[in-house]
């Protein structure tokens, strides 16, 4: 399988994602510039963290107009796994591929620290190698990570078990302690924590490994059945 890591002007976790994918899966990875309009050659797509367009106006608000976001939407529609990390999550909500919005942290400060997350479902291409209810350690680093959604949306997320991760101790004021959510088809994941920063022993946690392994396993199975 082949991965695309999308690079917007101002992305800064693109190489981190590339490093993690190569290390964990050994798969080929391309860094794809934001003006690409066709991602059909890729089996999985990563929207990495950073400050696309400086996060001016609002995090992710300008990046959503990049040509590549239309290509991402097309591949998501075809059922390919798309994962948005931090700024990538913000771009996914801004572009409507995921519901809700990410607001400035309740305390109005940027926050970078290791957090504990509860895995809420393993029914997704991203979490199949975790155990539901398992607590894992993945760091956060964001200023606008407070998840917000209307009550009907939250009810739907709960009913359809589309909350993928919750914070054990809420670091930013997210509603319902939400750290990551899935789309209705469960092939698009947005999460604020950075799994690519938890894949080697000296990083202080290796709990992010299984996200990349899960995606790899999901795609490889699909390819072998195709």
């Amino acid at each position: 399988m082949r991965w695309a890591v999308v690079v917007f002007p101002g992305s800064n976790c693109d190489r981190d994602a590339e490093q993690a994918i190569r290390l964990v899966t050994g798969d080929p990875v391309d860094l794809v510039w934001h003006d690409a309009d066709d991602l059909s050659g890729y089996d999985a797509i990563v929207l990495p963290g950073g400050f696309s367009y400086g996060d001016y106006l609002r995090a992710g608000a300008i990046a959503r107009f990049s040509p590549v976001v239309r290509a991402v939407a097309r591949e998501a529609e075809r059922g390919k796994p798309v994962i948005g990390i931090c700024n990538g999550f913000q771009i996914l909500t801004e572009s409507g591929l995921l519901p809700g919005a990410l607001l400035p942290n309740r305390h109005l400060q940027f926050r970078c620290e290791m957090t504990e997350l509860r895995v809420e479902t393993n029914d997704s291409p991203f979490t199949r190698l975790y155990t539901p209810g398992e607590v894992i350690r993945i760091p956060i680093a964001h200023g606008e990570g407070r998840y917000h959604a209307e009550p009907e949306v939250l009810e739907e997320l709960r009913r359809e078990r589309r909350v993928a991760f919750r914070y054990v101790e809420n670091p930013n004021g997210s509603v319902d302690d939400i750290a990551g959510i899935l789309n209705p088809k469960r092939n698009v994941l947005g999460l604020m924590p950075h799994p690519e920063r938890a894949v080697i022993d000296w990083m202080g946690s290796e709990d992010g490994i299984r996200i990349f392994q899960s995606i790899h396993a999901h795609v490889e199975e699909g390819l072998s059945h195709a």
């Binding site: 800064n12 976790c13 981190d16 970078c112 760091p139 680093a141």
Partner: peptide, 11 residues
């Protein structure tokens, strides 16, 4: 102080 800095980007 340092919780307000991204101390880990670049991994």
């Amino acid at each position: 102080v340092y919780r307000q800095y991204d101390t880990m980007v670049r991994a």
